[in-house]
Amino acid sequence: MISNKHIGEVLLKLEDISLSFGGVQALSNVSFEVREHEILGIIGPNGAGKSSMLNVINGFYHPDEGRITYKGTTRKDMRPHEAARQGIARTFQNIALFKGMTTLDNIMTGRNTKMRRNFLWQALYLGPARKEEMEHREAAERIIDFLEIEAIRKTPVGRLPYGLQKRVELGRALTAEPDLLLLDEPMAGMNLEEKEDMCRFILDVNDEFGTTIALIEHDMGVVMDISDRVVVLDYGRKIADGSPDEVRTNQDVIDAYLGVPHDIPPDTPPDDTPHANPQP
């Protein structure tokens, strides 16, 4: 694999995104861009609207106002399975795996958007569909190798420890071969060693596959280390946008975020309700 580490064109552009739940304003007039091949960190104190932002990008939430331009097409909002088809994959803050299914099956669901045969063919499980299934299986196995989870291939994920579940979830997102990967606190709840592994995988993904990544993370050290660029949200507004160094020295950020203690315990409750009703 060659290194793809050169930041390219704008992949995703968000303009004046506003979102409210009832009377609560979750996001107000937030605009930023995600460029090809970059790792964008989204940070901010609890309740800053970070998860809401991800949910807007993959279509779980529909913003009240604003425009989303993805791959050159501008629209008012995204739809989740359409977003997936367009190459947006994601993980969740509190793991959303298919707990009854094995690691392999979970990862295979990631191939869903790549399935060419229609459902009827698959239902019949005839020749071409079967051949296709084999191809997908190979793709899934590559990801399993990459994430070093061969040993737990056939284990129902409900029985796996937390750190491994996080890794399987990443695997599922990766199998879709996404253009844009959204990671919602990929390191929450992990010990130091697990965090290091996860950092390595994120960097490798970005490096080897050239995948664009937008991630939310509480651990400031991690974000500053791995991100090419950082967007800071506070009370649903964007207060800074730039390289880690620029952000680190931005006075607004220091006031709003760095000023408060950030050794937040890993199991902090989500900053917004991740399982609120998405609009399919």
């Binding site: 993959n58 779980f60 989740p80 399975h81 977003a83 997936a84 088809r85 994959a89 994601r90 969740f92 959303a96 795996l97 298919f98 707990k99 009854g100 299914m101 099956d105 295979m108 669901t109 990631g110 191939r111 869903n112 958007t113 399935m115 459902f119 698959q122 239902a123 499980y125 569909a129 299934e133 997908h136 599922r172 997102a173 879709a176 991740p274 399982h275 998405p278 399919p280």
Partner: peptide
Amino acid sequence: YTTIGRALRAVADDHQAALSVGIPLKT
């Protein structure tokens, strides 16, 4: 043994996660 079967199980397990991997819930 089929993809659709897997998709069905995925939907049963977690609607939101199923949506995120592009499984069309309606279908």
